[in-house]
């Protein structure tokens, strides 16, 4: 228990060297790999989430903690069957057709991953058909679309429609974001949610993936 506590502390401190060593020691001592994730690595990350919300930690520190957590997860992953792998949920995400702006989307990806989501990042300039294909292939809980331009945000509706036509709309939650996007636009095009920043997007995915 104490060593789980120390591991969580190392995750909070973003100390990947220590996390790596401690994880390896536990694996060598035959500690249950799922417990390593849930009680050690994720436990630390949960504290990070709370501290970030309270304003006691900043984004770059959250990123370091997330990296520390993944260093540990990489080591235990081969010991766990895919289906048993603890995950907050799966998200497919991309910037819509005609739009190459992805700073905001990258931030969302980083925040989602640090909250324990499995993220499939399609990249930029993704046509409605690309989203449909990715949803078919990865079967995510949530699909996220991003746009910076008022001209390209219209592609979000095309994607929602394409998901409907492919009969996938009921199987996946759709969320949208980006500077020109707002809540009423999200409702207009039939999305399930809108988030104004990466932290809110992460909370939204947590709610939608439940």
């Amino acid at each position: 228990m104490n060593s789980f506590g120390n591991m969580a502390e190392a995750v909070i401190a973003g100390d990947f060297e220590t996390v790596k060593k401690m994880t390896q020691t536990m694996i060598d001592e035959q500690v249950d790999p799922i417990a390593i994730i849930n009680q050690g690595l994720m436990a630390g990350m949960n504290v990070v989430g709370v501290r970030f919300k309270a304003g006691d930690m900043f984004v770059p520190e959250v990123m370091m903690s997330a990296r520390a957590m993944s260093t540990g997860i990489e080591l235990v992953k081969p010991l766990i069957a895919d289906t048993n792998m603890p995950s907050a949920g799966k998200v497919v995400i991309g910037t819509v057709k005609g739009d190459l702006h992805d700073i905001g989307k990258k931030l969302v990806v980083m925040m989602l991953e640090s909250a324990g989501f499995q993220v499939v990042d399609l990249g930029v300039d993704q046509a409605p058909a690309d989203f449909v294909k990715a949803v078919q292939e990865h079967n995510p809980h949530v699909v996220g679309m991003s746009a910076l331009l008022t001209t390209t945000m219209l592609k979000m509706k095309d994607t929602v429609d394409a998901l409907k036509e492919a009969g996938l709309r009921d199987k996946v939650k759709v969320i949208v974001g980006g500077a020109p996007v707002n809540r009423s636009f999200a409702e207009q095009i039939g999305a399930d949610g809108f988030a104004s920043d990466a932290a809110t997007a992460t909370d939204l995915c947590k709610t939608l993936a439940q």
Partner: peptide, 8 residues
């Protein structure tokens, strides 16, 4: 610059 609390 990105504000490290709000990512704005």
């Amino acid at each position: 610059p990105m504000d490290m609390r709000t990512m704005q």
